[in-house]
Design a protein around this nucleic acid. Structure first.
Length: 168
DNA sequence: AGGTGGGCTATCC
DNA sequence: AGGATAGCCCACC
């Protein structure tokens, strides 16, 4: 498919759905500095494609958008995500490539809320002794090839990339 | 201009 | 299986 076409539609979706109140002045600079390549709206669009009971990584979201080195910015976009964003963004389905839920540092409860949200939809989260939370990517991972999903298009779930493969 | 730190990662021990 | 270490790219001192 034409990546350019997908990009156009992506920005359309952005205008339509991007209702996040961006009151932090740094965000605007953030987006413009990226040359509108990786925007919050695109991140949210892709995250919305993650099927229920599946997870993917920050880095893979970045790859699907076409900016493989922007994993940390995906994290930023999710960090600034407003809870009232419509349609909802299943932010909890994005974890580290290791399968770990990022802790966000001591004194924060984000990781625990993420664990609860994952468990609420039937994803098993293993908690280690140090409090580290991990998800089995072989079982729950969703890592479609870039280009195999219509970024920004009206995602038809049934396409092809629905599940990760074998491997051991 | 240089340092640090982010909801990150791939790669080597 | 964990760490240490580069890279990474931008925001913020």
């Amino acid at each position: 498919m034409q990546p350019s076409a997908g990009r156009v539609v992506a920005s359309l979706c952005e205008e339509k759905f991007e209702t996040t109140p961006i009151n932090n002045p740094s965000i605007g600079a953030f987006e413009s500095a990226l040359g509108a390549q990786l925007t919050h709206g695109k991140v949210y669009d892709v995250v919305r494609m993650i099927p229920a009971q599946h997870v993917t990584s920050y880095g893979h979201i970045a790859k699907l958008i076409g900016q493989p080195n922007y994993s940390r910015h995906v994290g930023q976009a999710l960090k600034f995500l407003s809870p009232n964003t419509t349609p909802p963004v299943p932010w909890h389905r994005v974890i580290a490539s290791s399968g770990a839920i990022s802790s966000r540092g001591p004194g924060t409860d984000g990781a625990q809320r993420q664990q609860e949200a994952l468990e609420a939809e039937g994803i098993e989260v293993m908690v280690g002794r140090g409090g580290e939370r991990k998800v089995d990517l072989r079982e729950y991972g969703w890592f479609p090839e870039p280009g195999s999903v219509a970024v920004g298009l009206f995602a038809q779930e049934g396409s092809d990339a629905d599940h990760i493969e074998e491997n051991n």
